[in-house]
Structures are given as C-alpha cells and as structure tokens.
Design a protein around this nucleic acid. Structure first.
Length: 653
DNA sequence: GCAAGGTC
C-alpha cells in the first residue's frame, strides 16, 4: 500500500481529491483517512508528539533546577489516536510519502511521522514531496518528483523545541519557586512571552513617567460655515492670548480643490484579520471562530502571512458566488473593477484569507456571522474600485495670522460601500474665492495638555510582534492569551499588573536577553546554520545549557524573591483599612480573606469566597474606595464585587 | 502545573 501523510486533515482530503479523483472516506479512532484502491492519505494534527522532561522531574519543589540541564529529554505522544492509526496503516505500507507543509516545522512534523512509521515498519521506502499551494498543478508537479526529508531542516526545528523548553522550564520554575507562586498561580517566562511582556511594561513605565505639558490652540468660525484653526501649538499662554485677541474677520489667501484617491484595503493575512476583528472580539476568540469557519468550508486557511492573491485563485468565480445573496450589491461593486489589491508580504504557502463558500446568516451563530461577514466584505473590498474624495483646503489670513481650513467629501464610494468598518465622514468646507472676505462669527482659545503614549491594544501588540519577528501567525494570539491567564496583564488596551513589572525586572536581573527579541534573532541564526549543516545541533543546545548553568549559578535567590514579592503584594492590595488606614490585602491562612497589613495591632478583616481563582481588579468601588475582587470559578462565568459592600450586605441581611 | 510550535 502507498501511504501519504499530510500535516492536517483538510490537506489530506484535498490531496486525495486531486490525486485520486474519487475516494472513500474512512474513520478509525475518530481520525479520518482517504482511500483509493491501494493508496491512502492520512492527515496529522500538526505535531503529534512533543518534548518533555521524564516524569521524575515533575515535582517542581523537589527537583533541583540544575538537574533539568542534564535531564534526558523525551518525546511524548500527544495525539494517541492519530499515532495508533498511523502505525496500523504504516504496517501495511510498502511506500510512504511525506506531504507535510513546506516549511521548517512541516519538515519536523514529517520527520516525526517517519520515526513513528519506522518503528513498526523499519524497511519501508520513504520519500517527501514539497508543494507551496494545494492546487492540482502544484500537487501533481510535486508528486511527479519526490525527494527526501531534509533532516537538517527538521533538526533545526527540533533544536528550537529543546531550547525553548529548557529556557522556559528553568526560568519558569525559578521565578515561580522564588516567589512561592506555585500550582495554578505559577509565574512563567519564555523566549516569546517575556519580550512581549516587557514591551507592555516598558510602555506603562513611559506612561507613568510622562509629565503632561500644557499648550494652547486657536480655532475660529467664519461665515458660510468655514471652520479654521491656526496650525500650530502655543506653548506660551501669553503669546496664545495675544494672537487670539488679534483674530477678526478673514480674507481667503488660497483655496484648492483636488481629487484624492483612497486605495482599497489589502487582502487579509492573519495579522490584518485579527486587527480588524479586534473591533468585535479578542484575537483568540476571533481565531477560534475563523478556525471553525475554515473546517466547515466557509473560508480559506486562516493562518497565513500572505497578502497577495495567487494567480491560481479564481477570484471572479468567488465574487460571482455572492450574486443574489445578501452581498449582491457588494459583489456587483467588486465586479466593476476586479483588480485585486496587494500587500507587501507575499508567501506561497497559503493564499490570503478569503471566503470559499456562500453562507447564510441563519446557518451561523452570531459571532461566526460577524467574522464571516468581515472576511467577505474585506475580500470584495480588495477587488472593488478605489474610493475618491474631493479634498478642499483653504488658507485664511486674519489679524496677520494664517489659519487653515479643510474639508472632504466622498465623491465615489468604491470599496467603501462594501467595507463598512471604518467611518468615512464628510467634513464641510464650501468653495471659496481667493480674496473673499469672511466675517468672523466666533473664536476660541483651547487649553490642552500633551498626552502620554497610549497603551497597546491586543491587535497592535500582534502587529508589533510580527514586526519584531516574535512568535508566528499561529501562536501570537496564544501568547497574548497566556499573558492574561498568568495575571500579567488585564483589559484591552492592555495594562500590566504590578506582578508583571516585577517579573520583567527579575528576568532582567537574571538574564536580560530573555526579555528582548534578541533571543529569537539569535535562535533564528543558529537554526539557519543547522539547516545549512554548518553547526551541530547538539552544540547549539549545549551553548544554551551552559548559559543557563551560569544564570542559575549567579542567581541571587533572595534578591529575586524580594523583587517578585514586591509586585505580587502590590497586586493584593484591595484598599485602605477603614479603622487604621493601613493596607488591606488578600491573605491566605486557613482559607483566604481580606486583612489589614497592621495585624495584629489592627484586626479588621473581610471575608472572601473560598473557591475559584481570585484577583484584585483595577476597578474601584465608589462607595468605599476599595478595589473590586474578581472570582473566576472553574466552571461558569467570573464575577466581581466590592468585598466591603458584600460584607455589609451580608451582615445586614 | 513549565516553552513555543503545529492543528481542531
């Protein structure tokens, strides 16, 4: 039998379609595979095995950290049913073709499959095909000239796994142990999450250190609805006042009217998609929904870096699919032009995210429809005519000062009639004649303050991570979710907790590069060298181990625990004690409760629920100035309350 | 209970 192994089920099915035409769908252990006579295609689920330390290293408290550096690293099967099926099929095979994705991780996923197969069928003939799009031409071409697994490439990916595990596990355990944050509340560190966290913390520091400076602006309203302003900021109030006093009737010095083209948006890659979806929901939720739409055949593969439609994609056919549907009008606008926009990034593995089937509102849930509609509208917009604005600009002289007025009017909506997610508001400015006199109706002196830089949103973070080469299209949203679930950040825009400040500071003390994108850059270099066969993977791992050994040797445990507990304790402060003014903090003794930091001198305390994970929010109760406490039960929705209010209502029952 | 990377 000829066994073909792909990275995922969808690709397995597509390849069966292309190669076999007709085939039987079989299912065993809950895993699909596709059969045609003597040939069979089966899809994996990405990595079906992963690296870990042997079980005797599982006890964080007992295992000496240094011993992790010498530990054997073992492969653990993560997808038991797939591995079982793969073994069964492999036993019957006389030829195996690895058809995983054509990239570094894909090569390793392929090698993992080979190793599983060889255990049960050591002598089977194995080859590897490489394709960068799942189109009939590409697939047939790839299968007509199979090659071999690129072991160096796979080893590079494997080395990344080991290094990430070593650094991650050692630093995670080190900071968790020195802070006493163990079990469910452990603190974590890693090559990608820690630099991301540092970016958030650094921004918060900038905000805290920011000193607002006052400045003044002058605006004026003239007759005929002309609104103008002096195009500069006054730092000196007296000067601003002097200029303000002078402003009177104006004379039009210049007027221009030009058409300006506003280009249609570029096709969706994962990052662009998540940015736009963030108008409705957090990125991890948007990804989960996109994944689901993909599996059900409504949209193309949602994990892609590509922003250029490939030649092979029949765009017209896709647009015509929407004629007569809810998007009929939009499809017709797209058909007027049909010149696809293109972004800067062009890759060959997957096309940009686009709809693949027509869905009706009622077949999808509310959130699914939001995402589907977004993808449809974006797709149609990338093919529609550009929008055109009429832009007007005038300069007006008044009291010897130059004021400017501007207006804009959408004269051809083009893609804007389809992609309705950003506002296109007209700003009124009439046609003016040079030399025309305008009577002043009112004027205003505005006092303003310079603003600190703004916090990152989840989507701007994902964009920045992409720019810094931190994480991948498939993991960035997961990394951000991790920062939330560790209690490092809250809300959107993203605000770090005090614990996050401490963790970053502790990691900087231990080994600053782990808090910078440099670690990833260095790892990339090493992986390239491994791929080229220029360096032994073992040597690269050894280098990390030696580094970690030095980090552990020079780590000052006491200092570390001091730094960490500072932030952790600040996050526990609920408010000030109504009896003595001390800090009220969340404490754990027998159960948990709120108590005064001046205990035993002050015995004020408040009860807390005992179950579910707890944290102190940034929200303050208006009545008592105490912070709300949030409880997240294992099952069900989380809830928030002021501990003082809830106590009072309880005793007054 | 650790990481980050695949995929559902």
């Amino acid at each position: 039998m000829w066994l073909i192994v792909t990275e995922k089920n969808q690709t397995a099915k597509r390849i069966a379609q292309i190669l076999f035409g007709s085939f039987q769908t079989k299912k065993k252990y809950g895993v699909n595979y596709y059969l045609n006579g003597d040939a069979c295609v089966v899809g994996l689920k990405g990595h079906v095995v992963e690296y870990d330390f042997p079980p005797e290293y599982n006890d964080w408290k007992r295992v000496e950290l240094k011993s992790l550096l010498n530990a054997r690293i073992v492969r653990v099967v993560k997808e038991k049913s797939i591995v079982r099926l793969l073994e069964e099929l492999a036993k019957k095979a006389d030829r195996v073709t690895i058809a995983t994705d054509y990239d570094r991780e894909g090569e390793l996923i392929g090698l993992e499959a080979v190793q599983i197969i060889k255990r049960v069928n050591p002598d089977v003939r194995i080859d590897r095909v490489k394709f960068s799009a799942i189109t009939p031409e590409e697939i047939r071409k790839a299968f007509s000239s199979p090659g071999k697994i690129n072991v160096n490439l796979a080893k590079a990916a494997e080395t990344r796994q080991i290094i990430d595990l070593l650094w991650g596990a050692v630093l995670t355990r080190l900071i968790s142990l020195s802070s006493g944050r163990l079990g469910r509340d452990f603190l974590s560190a890693g090559r990608v999450q820690s630099p991301t966290l540092r970016i958030i913390v650094d921004r918060e520091k900038e905000i805290r250190e920011f000193k607002p400076e006052p400045y003044w602006e002058i605006t004026a309203k003239f007759e005929r609805g002309v609104e103008a302003k002096i195009p500069r900021r006054f730092k000196d109030k007296e000067e601003a006042k002097r200029v303000y006093e002078k402003i009177g009737d104006g004379v039009v010095k210049s007027f221009e009217e030009v058409e300006r083209v506003e280009k249609k948006p570029i096709p969706f890659n994962t990052t662009e998609f998540l940015k736009e979806a963030s108008k409705f929901m957090p990125p991890d939720k948007a990804m989960a929904i996109a994944e689901n739409l993909y599996i059900n055949g409504y949209i193309s593969y949602p994990r892609t870096d590509n922003t250029v439609y490939p030649q092979s994609l029949n765009l017209k056919k896709l647009v015509k699919m929407f004629l007569g549907s809810e998007f009929d009008k939009e499809a017709r606008i797209a058909l007027e032009d049909m010149k696809p926009s293109r972004g800067k990034k062009e890759t060959k593995d997957h096309p940009p995210i686009h709809p693949t089937a027509l869905a009706e509102r009622k077949e999808l849930s509310k959130d699914e429809w939001i995402i589907y509609e977004l993808i449809v509208r974006r797709f149609l917009a990338t093919l529609a005519p550009d929008a055109v604005w009429m832009v007007r600009k005038a300069e007006i002289i008044s009291g010897g000062e130059k004021l400017v007025a501007s207006g804009k009017e959408l004269i051809k909506s083009g893609w804007r009639a389809i992609y309705i997610y950003s506002k296109a508001e007209d700003v009124f400015l009439p046609k003016l004649r040079v030399g025309e006199r305008l009577k002043l109706l009112s004027k205003k002196l505005h006092e303003k303050k310079t603003k600190p830089p703004s916090r990152y949103s989840t989507s701007s973070l994902i964009k920045l991570m992409e720019k810094l080469n931190l994480g991948t299209k498939s993991t960035r949203h997961e990394i951000i979710r991790k920062l939330y679930s560790r209690g490092y950040v809250r809300g959107n825009p993203v605000k770090p907790t005090e614990t996050a400040f401490s963790v970053v500071e502790a990691l900087k003390k231990l080994y600053e590069p782990i808090t910078l994108p440099d670690m990833t850059a260095k790892l990339e270099e090493d992986m390239n060298k491994i791929e080229e066969g220029k360096v032994d993977p073992k040597l690269v791992v050894k280098e990390s181990v030696e580094f970690l050994r030095r980090v552990l040797e020079s780590a000052d445990k006491e200092e570390l625990s001091k730094i960490l507990s500072e932030g952790i304790n600040k996050d526990k402060i609920v408010g000030s004690c109504p009896e003595c003014g001390g800090n009220l903090v969340v404490k754990k003794a027998k159960g948990r409760f709120v108590a005064c930091s001046n205990y035993p001198d002050c015995k004020f305390s408040l009860p807390l629920p005992q179950k579910g994970s707890l944290y102190v929010t940034a929200k303050t109760c208006k009545e008592h100035g105490m912070k709300f406490v949030r409880i997240k039960p294992k099952k069900g929705k989380s809830w928030e309350f002021c501990p003082y209010c809830s106590y009072l209502s309880w005793i007054n029952r």
